[in-house]
């Protein structure tokens, strides 16, 4: 059965004089390469120019705070359960008196770690989260030379309280889910 028209029947024929000299073929080849010389290069000079990324791009995670600067996460562990790569670990702790301005509910995560080398950035943690606490952002995880540096703790994951330290989660935040 013929699938395409691209197949060529192999014939062993004598080369013509022009083919034996090779020079016409070389000339043809050189014309091809020189035409590429003037072509527009598809390269994107990364640090200066960034490729536009999708509005739903899944990059480095953020642990959100609410409007009053309290951490949303209640350490329920649903994200860790949902995580197919088992990249998330956490330790829950009880909120003490006087910490109401830090944590929104009575339980919070005293330790929250994501191993960025294990994470596959599937976004299932975000989907599993009932508290709008974890989101994937358009940020790219920084390179490192030590494996340990890729275990991101709360120091790297939780966003700042000040308005300019908040991490925008764009289209993925809020609207579709109310808590």
């Amino acid at each position: 059965m013929q699938l395409t028209n691209r197949s060529k029947v192999v014939v062993q024929k004598e080369m013509t004089m022009a083919e034996q000299i090779y020079l016409p073929a070389i000339f043809k080849g050189m014309m091809i390469t020189i035409s590429h010389f003037f072509k527009k290069k598809p390269t994107i000079n990364y640090p200066e120019v960034k490729r536009p990324i999708a509005p739903v791009y899944r990059g480095q995670h953020v642990l959100k705070r609410d409007e009053q600067g309290r951490e949303n996460c209640t350490a329920c562990g649903l994200c860790a359960v949902a995580c197919p790569a088992e990249a998330i670990t956490m330790t829950a702790a009880e909120r003490k008196r006087g910490e109401e301005s830090l944590y929104r509910e009575e339980k919070y995560a005293s330790v929250y770690e994501i191993n960025m080398l294990r994470c596959i950035f599937c976004g299932l943690c975000e989907e599993a989260c009932p508290k709008e606490a974890i989101f994937l952002t358009d940020r790219i995880v920084k390179v490192g030379t030590e494996r340990d540096t890729f275990i991101y703790g709360k120091d790297k994951l939780v966003e700042g309280i000040a308005a300019d330290q908040r991490i925008d989660v764009g289209k993925r935040g809020g609207a579709h889910r109310k808590f």
Binding site: T33, I34, H36, F37, K39, K41, P42, T43, N45
Partner: peptide, 13 residues
Amino acid sequence: KVAAFLQDRLGPN
């Protein structure tokens, strides 16, 4: 540079 340009790249920059 020439190698890069002939191969649709930018070369050392």
